[in-house]
Each structure stands twice: as structure tokens, then as C-alpha cells.
């Protein structure tokens, strides 16, 4: 693959970067990223990855755009109310960058379809808002040896880490989802819109670093921040030999559909 004149211009600010260059940009253009959730996290991720020229971007969401989304889900506009989120997102991404091929998946993720869905992608972004799906994504990615970026936000806080095959996974930190209704979802707790942007852009940067092969990913580190104080912390953790899914003798060999009410972040 060689860059066209238009691409050289469009991606010039990437190419200038010593760690990216023409080859790095070509890797981005050849990259395939799946974004799960076209909500608060998925919006900035989708916009930045599309702008960056990620060649193929899949986007998963079952929902339609409603008025409560618009305070933070910046890929959807007021005119999109009632429209399928994936279609609304696709339109914006293609408008930013026609180089990008956007594949929409309007579906509920479950143990039945997730493996098939992720298998064609190089990197997965978890932009979901509930524990059952977060565990489902983690387990599926571990089993299918797919790297992914975890992300979670609540009120003014966010946390994220990146999983690579063989490195620590979500279950190394949290053995299983909290009891149903033990944790407030954002519809009950609230979320500062910009916090979704802060965390989503970190996830987008991780995906791009992964495609380019630059720097150090957030592996074996949980980055968390509190926007009220603007303190960032990075918590080191290790792969747990006794982890039920990625440990030496995993006890979870089949995907599990946990139950919990969902809301969209």
C-alpha cells in the first residue's frame, strides 16, 4: 500500500511523528477496530479513529438515539433523535473521513454472537456501560486472544486499561460482576459529559498506539482519574495465575451471560 497525495496531506500530522511515519499511518489504514457501544465512550473513540484513518471500523449498538444521550454522546446530533445509533455514528464517521470503511452491527451482544463478531478485528474497544457485558467482552477477548481496551465511567470518574493476550485481564482484578443492582448505573448516578470524552479519547489513543506499535500500552496498569480534583493515578496489577479465565487453570471455559439492567452511557 502506498499513500496517495491526498492521504499524505490528510495524515501529515501523523506522518511527522517519529513513532508513526508513513509506515505507521499505513498500519492505521490497514487496521480493523471494533467499537462496542456507540454512546458516551464510543462517540469520541469513533470520531478519533475515523479521523485517524483506521481502515475498517465496526460499531456495535442496539439502541436508538434518545434525548438523554445528547448531553455526552457527541457523535449523535439532535436531528438523529429516534435513529439507530450505529447508523447515526456511521454517517458522522464517513463525513469526517471517506477513507474509512464503517461496518454497523445493530444487535444485542451475547455469548452467542460475540466471538463471531470480534474475530475479524485487530483491536476491540469496550465502550459499554454495564458489568455483564464488560465481563462478556473480557472473557471473549481472552478466549479469542484479542487485545481490547476496557473503559468505565461514573459521575466524575473514569478508569481504563488495555489487555493484550497473555497480559492481565479484567477478571484478574475483579473476579465477577458485582451483585445485581449493587452498583448504581449512570441513569441513577449521573455522569459529567466531558468525562466520557476524557476516557474515550484515552481508549482511542491506545487503539492507535496498538496499530502503530508505538510506546507503552496501559497493560497491567489501571489508569483512573477523578475530574473533580483532576488527579490521575495508575495502579499496577499483574496477571493472576488463579484468574478464572486467563489463569493457568481457567475454570471459565464457556461464555456467561450475566443478568443486569442496562442503561446507555
Amino acid at each position: 500500500m502506498s499513500l496517495t497525495e491526498d492521504q499524505i496531506e490528510r495524515y501529515s500530522r501523523h506522518i511527522i511523528l517519529q513513532q508513526v511515519g508513513g509506515k505507521g499511518q499505513e498500519n492505521i489504514l490497514a487496521g480493523k477496530v471494533l467499537i462496542i457501544g456507540a454512546g458516551g465512550l464510543g462517540s469520541p473513540v469513533a470520531m478519533y479513529l475515523a479521523a485517524a484513518g483506521v481502515g475498517t471500523i465496526g460499531i456495535v449498538d442496539f439502541d436508538k438515539v434518545d434525548l438523554t444521550n445528547l448531553q455526552r454522546q457527541i457523535i449523535h446530533f439532535t436531528k438523529d433523535l429516534g435513529r439507530e445509533k450505529v447508523l447515526s455514528a456511521k454517517e458522522k464517521m464517513e463525513a469526517i473521513n471517506p477513507d474509512v470503511k464503517v461496518i454497523t452491527h445493530q444487535l444485542w451482544l451475547s455469548s452467542a454472537n460475540i466471538k463471531e463478531l470480534i474475530k475479524d478485528y485487530d483491536f476491540i474497544i469496550d465502550g459499554t456501560d454495564n458489568f455483564p457485558v464488560k465481563f462478556l467482552i473480557n472473557d471473549a477477548c481472552v478466549m479469542e486472544k484479542k487485545p481490547f481496551s476496557h473503559g468505565g465511567i461514573l459521575r466524575f470518574q473514569g478508569q481504563t486499561f488495555t489487555h493484550l493476550p497473555g497480559q492481565a485481564c479484567y477478571r484478574c482484578l475483579f473476579k465477577e460482576p458485582p451483585p445485581k443492582d449493587a452498583v448504581p448505573t449512570c441513569s441513577q448516578a449521573g455522569i459529567l459529559g466531558a468525562v466520557a470524552g476524557m476516557l474515550g479519547t484515552i481508549q482511542a489513543a491506545e487503539a492507535l498506539k496498538f496499530l502503530v506499535g508505538a510506546g507503552e500500552l496501559l497493560t497491567n496498569r489501571l489508569l483512573s482519574f477523578d475530574a473533580l480534583t483532576m488527579d490521575y493515578r495508575s495502579l499496577k496489577f499483574k496477571r493472576n495465575k488463579n484468574c478464572p479465565v486467563c489463569g493457568d487453570n481457567p475454570s471459565i471455559n464457556k461464555l456467561i451471560d450475566y443478568e443486569q439492567a442496562v442503561c446507555s452511557l
Binding site: 499513500l3 499524505i8 496531506e9 501529515s12 506522518i15 511527522i16 511515519g21 508513513g22 509506515k23
Partner: peptide, 13 residues
Amino acid sequence: CPMNFVKTKLVLE
């Protein structure tokens, strides 16, 4: 600038 550098860099690569 900086397109001249961008192009230089691409040739060097």
C-alpha cells in the same frame, strides 16, 4: 512546511 518534511520523510522511509 511541514508538508515538505512529510514528503522527505516518506521518501526516506
